[in-house]
Design a protein around this nucleic acid. Structure first.
Lengths: 334, 334
DNA sequence: TTGTACGCGTTATCAA
DNA sequence: TTGATAACGCGTACAA
């Protein structure tokens, strides 16, 4: 049994195809009796409208994409999740397209092609617009400037690319980084290591403002990803703060430098989440971004562009941090 | 500047639209000179084929979906990631559609509708087939049996629904659970708590075979999610294994029961991943599922169905565990 | 090697 | 209230 079309139903009901089309979409100008008859046979035959055809005729797909490198950070997932909900509320469907092309700068040609193909497809009518989470370890200008030139509806989320005139929704990273550092200071840290080295504007902002806050508290801080050869451990005091953008970086660094850090009191400061016990830190301070708000704003902004509504908002929209959490161990050390 | 179509190019080059169509797809039966001329003007005008139209004409979209409740488990993400790659290699594009509708059985009507709508759309031509990760806390039969009746191409991954005649790709959970328990025993556990209570066939299998392995080692075990009121802690020995499907369950349980577990040696056994330090456990044993293989097989299976190729495989395809890892602390307790 | 003509399944604009 | 017809943009037999 092949696919049922409007044509089939029209033939069976002895009416024109256009009448069926109207009946299916509850157009008021079709007699109640005929509508009922049509709906019933449609039901009986298990008719499903062909969205490809509908979209082609209408010139729109009412579909949004989130194009992103990966989903291993919880923020990424939470953004997709809320964006999906919010899109649905406005009768759009949202899909996540992963290109897996941000492995710390080590691109395989394969993924790169994958990414390019996605952007191509986006511009070819499969979606009305896209939320873009740019790569964090590579500058995406060359990938994306063609789309911007075509005026393809896009919004950057979380991270962004300064060179492109595309709207951005992100966190108020200056205040967030300041407060994260301040809370580490308040918790007793007397020296600090920052791990903000990714080549993107968000990491740079966080680094600058975290270090500024540490400085205000007379806490010596350095920004690095690994200990340099000529490192002098005297810079570290007995209570050291380690702050970074994610648990991954901070935990990884701590494990690498276990020997150096052993015996000192540690305070970790991270963004978004900490899974498991705070160990080896005494406490972990977590700046939780407001992914719900970010996602909602991004979707609204994108739909405004698609539907050609002017939004009087600034190009870069900043969302305050949702909350700070402090995690201590539930277990007394034995 | 509106969208460029084949029509525009044809008019400019003074040829028929069908010639342009052929030239664009490198059809050999078009003179090199004309092809070059056409390609050049296409380039110059920044022509992009309209995929909606192409798909409608062809009756296929060469698009796959992964329909899933969420992405917070690392397996989910790894599956999407590899499935996406593997689909690309066969010239399909893959998208993740999240319905966020598996919150421990507490469904909001909102999400439920979201989910239903996705399945609708899948059946309406937007995709050629779907990889389904069924909900783990709710039986999905009523959602999915209509699609199966329509012979919509689907494959279940990881989890599945016994009642539906849909191909399944999952882990060899019997052996995996047995070995996980065995390794906990080898590590010195003398009593055990299992946390496999989700209403799905995978959790049930894991429970049965983990408990069986404990029993073989004369280790008393119980299966629960929370301590019952009349619980007798004497069942617990000084070294207790806690095994479950994810870090979330195991860590959550341990924190809840910190008082009870305090002072005992703990060994955790989980599937897929453990983030952060093993604390409060002495060691964590991790059964890592082979998501790459699972994803690849699922994609192949799905494409076989779509392209109507018979695959002589059993309905339920089981993939062995990738590896077992054992995690101990990098830090000496102070 | 190129052009003609029709189909894909819908929607929309007329006219009846 | 309904029907005829032309888009939507592309693919493809078939004819030239």
């Amino acid at each position: 049994m092949a696919k049922i079309t409007l044509h089939d139903i029209a033939k069976i009901c002895g009416v024109d195809i256009s009448t069926v089309s109207r009946a299916m979409r509850a157009d008021p100008r079709v007699k109640a009796a005929t509508r009922k008859r049509i709906k019933e046979t449609a039901d009986r035959l298990n008719y499903r409208p062909n969205l490809l055809a509908r979209n082609l005729a209408g010139g729109k797909s009412r579909t949004l994409w989130v194009i992103m490198p990966s989903l291993d950070a919880s923020t990424d997932y939470r953004i997709v999740r809320h964006a999906s909900h919010h899109a649905n509320e406005q009768d759009y469907s949202l899909f996540a397209a992963l290109h897996d092309c941000d492995n710390f700068g080590q691109l395989e040609g394969h993924s790169e092609a994958h990414y390019e193909q996605m952007l191509e497809q986006a511009a070819q009518g499969l979606t009305d617009g896209a939320i873009i989470l740019p790569r964090r370890h590579v500058n995406d200008v060359y990938m994306l400037d063609e789309l911007t030139r075509q005026n393809f509806p896009m919004v950057f989320v979380d991270n962004f690319i300064e060179e492109l005139p595309v709207p951005v929704v992100t966190t108020e990273n200056r205040k967030a980084a300041q407060e994260l550092a301040q809370r580490c200071a308040d918790a007793g840290a007397t020296s600090a290591i920052c791990l903000f080295r990714e080549p993107n504007p968000v990491a740079r902002t966080r680094k600058d403002f975290a270090q500024q806050a540490f400085q205000k508290n007379n806490i010596p801080s350095i920004n690095l990803m690994e200990i340099p050869a000529h490192w002098n451990p005297d810079h570290l005091t007995d209570t050291v703060a380690i702050v970074g953008s994610s648990q991954f970086y901070v935990h990884h660094f701590a494990v690498q430098q276990a020997e150096l850090l052993q015996g000192r009191r540690l305070i970790f400061g991270v963004f978004d989440e900490w899974t498991g016990e705070p160990s080896p830190a005494e406490k972990v301070i977590i700046a939780i971004q407001d992914c719900e708000a970010i996602a909602d704003r991004a979707v609204e902004r994108l739909i405004d562009i698609i539907e050609d509504r002017p939004s009087g908002k600034p190009r870069i929209e900043m969302v305050p941090i949702k909350e700070f959490k402090c995690l201590s161990s539930s277990f007394v050390p034995t």
